[in-house]
């Protein structure tokens, strides 16, 4: 038998996978490079491993949500990512959807027991 924490770890992994994308998009109205994102998100309590973030950034770029640019003026070359036009739109929509999910889930979690009217 697995104990509760093992189950939790697995489920949290799945849960994070989607939410990290929102977190990443939220920080990219200004250009950022990968590791600065890791730190920024970390300061805000969103722990993300570089090994997950870097491939994610590339995927988002490939999908057209992010633009990227190499900066070679600094001590070491860094790839900066920035929301593209589509990326901005998608992010706004995503935030709306996210708020809906949070509301519905809060509703479901907290109002359990007293069944309110069935139609939404």
């Amino acid at each position: 038998m697995k104990d509760a924490h093992e189950h939790l770890d697995k489920l949290m992994q799945e849960l994070r996978r989607g939410t990290i994308t929102i977190g990443v998009l939220s920080q990219l109205s200004e250009p950022q490079y990968g590791y600065s994102l890791v730190t920024m998100l970390g300061k805000n309590g969103i722990r993300v491993e570089p090994g997950t973030l870097y491939p994610l950034l590339r995927r988002l770029e490939k999908q057209g949500l992010l633009d990227s640019k190499w900066d070679t003026n600094e001590a070491r070359p860094r790839k900066y990512y920035l929301l593209s036009k589509t990326g901005k739109e998608v992010f706004e929509l995503l935030v709306g959807e996210w708020k809906n999910i949070v509301n519905s889930l809060n509703h479901v979690i907290e109002d359990k027991g007293d069944d309110v009217d069935g139609n939404d």
Binding site: Y33, Y35, Y54, R58, R76
Partner: peptide, 16 residues
């Protein structure tokens, strides 16, 4: 591309 980015990342992490 990925090699350059990874190298940068590792150096950043080390500096940190």
């Amino acid at each position: 591309d990925i090699a350059v980015e990874l190298r940068g990342l590792i150096e950043d992490m080390l500096e940190d």
